Amino acid sequence: MRRDVFQAIADPVRRDIIQLLSQKTLSINEIAHQFDVSRPAISKHLKILNECGIIDIQQQGRERYCLIRPKSLIPAFLWVEQYQSLWEEKIDSFEAYLKQLQAKSKNDNKNE
Rank of each mutant, 00 (worst) to 15 (best):
73 L>P: 09
84 Q>K: 13
77 F>N: 13
75 P>Q: 06
68 I>K: 07
87 W>P: 07
31 I>F: 01
63 E>Y: 15
33 H>I: 11
51 E>T: 10
2 R>Y: 11
41 A>W: 15
65 Y>D: 11
111 N>T: 14
78 L>G: 13
34 Q>D: 07
106 K>T: 01
15 R>A: 10
82 Q>P: 15
89 E>L: 05
89 E>H: 15
57 I>H: 05
5 V>P: 02
27 S>Q: 04
8 A>Y: 01
11 D>N: 09
1 M>V: 13
107 N>P: 04
6 F>Q: 12
61 G>N: 00
77 F>Y: 14
22 S>N: 01
107 N>A: 12
79 W>E: 14
45 H>F: 02
82 Q>D: 02
107 N>M: 03
99 K>P: 05
79 W>T: 15
2 R>C: 10
89 E>P: 15
110 K>G: 02
2 R>H: 10
95 E>Q: 12
105 S>Y: 00
27 S>R: 06
13 V>T: 04
67 L>S: 02
83 Y>I: 12
60 Q>G: 06
73 L>R: 13
16 D>P: 08
12 P>Q: 07
41 A>P: 01
51 E>V: 01
98 L>I: 13
39 R>P: 04
56 D>Y: 12
79 W>V: 06
20 L>H: 01
35 F>M: 00
7 Q>V: 07
31 I>D: 02
64 R>D: 02
85 S>C: 05
28 I>D: 02
84 Q>N: 02
23 Q>K: 11
99 K>D: 12
9 I>H: 04
55 I>K: 05
46 L>S: 00
70 P>W: 06
101 L>D: 15
46 L>V: 01
23 Q>F: 00
90 K>D: 04
27 S>W: 07
88 E>H: 14
19 Q>K: 06
10 A>I: 01
66 C>S: 00
19 Q>A: 03
67 L>T: 07
25 T>E: 00
47 K>G: 03
104 K>T: 02
44 K>I: 10
5 V>H: 09
20 L>E: 09
73 L>K: 10
109 N>Q: 10
5 V>A: 13
21 L>W: 03
99 K>F: 00
32 A>C: 06
23 Q>H: 09
11 D>S: 09
16 D>Y: 14
16 D>L: 12
22 S>V: 08
81 E>W: 03
50 N>W: 13
45 H>V: 09
71 K>M: 08
8 A>F: 10
34 Q>K: 00
95 E>T: 12
3 R>F: 15
65 Y>F: 11
40 P>H: 01
74 I>M: 11
2 R>N: 13
